[in-house]
Amino acid sequence: MAFFEGSKMTAGYGDGPDIISSCTINVDKGEIVAILGPNGAGKSTAMKTMLGLLNLKSGSVLINGEDITNLSPQDRVKKGISFVPQSKNVFAELTVKENLEVGAFLRTDKLDKILNDIYDLFPILEEKQSQIVGELSGGQRQQVALGRALMIKPSVLMLDEPTAGVSPIVMDELFEHIIKVKKTNVAIIMVEQNAKQALSISDRGYVLVTGQNKFEGSGNELLNDPEVRRSFLGA
């Protein structure tokens, strides 16, 4: 039994058709899991369903053995699930420090220690703590976004295309940060377009096609699977 699992999830937007059907994804603490697949395969939908942004038609979501299928996103956040959306993932009008403080909105204890932990992970944020986030560079913003999500000391971190629209150098840096986060014993799920790079840092990966699990395995297995290579990795 994995730490966080969405099992046999079927869901769609409103009354529309099912985007994902009987899709299963799980992740353990200290593990990075990548969700891959072609456009429209339902990668982001699967993740948003696990967060509770979409209603399940069937299937269930469990964390640490507890059924949270019927909880709202806000309540799932309280269970320690953090999410970084693909776009608009920072408060652009607030300072770096305020972004982090809002991230810790649900905490009632003193923030000094957790803030220091985040500054240790992302030193640049300490340097720029009183700057307005809207004025930062793309890579720095992504760090703010990660930092905000980590402020509740989540046990699960979900990233929706963290590297979309950043330069290759920034991408490498970001992945390094994600690995650092993983080492703090967090379960990480990420949806990625850059499949090769994502798999290279992932422990496991899922390949979705038309909303269903098509392949799964460790990062290396998938990278070396000839069919996966042919259909998704472009080589």
Binding site: K88, V102, F105
Partner: peptide, 19 residues
């Protein structure tokens, strides 16, 4: 701060647990 955050980015504010 939570009010300013809500004004700035409603969805993210909700994801941060702001009521």
């Amino acid at each position: 701060t939570s009010m300013r955050a809500y004004s700035d980015n409603e969805d993210l504010a909700l994801l941060s647990g702001i009521d």
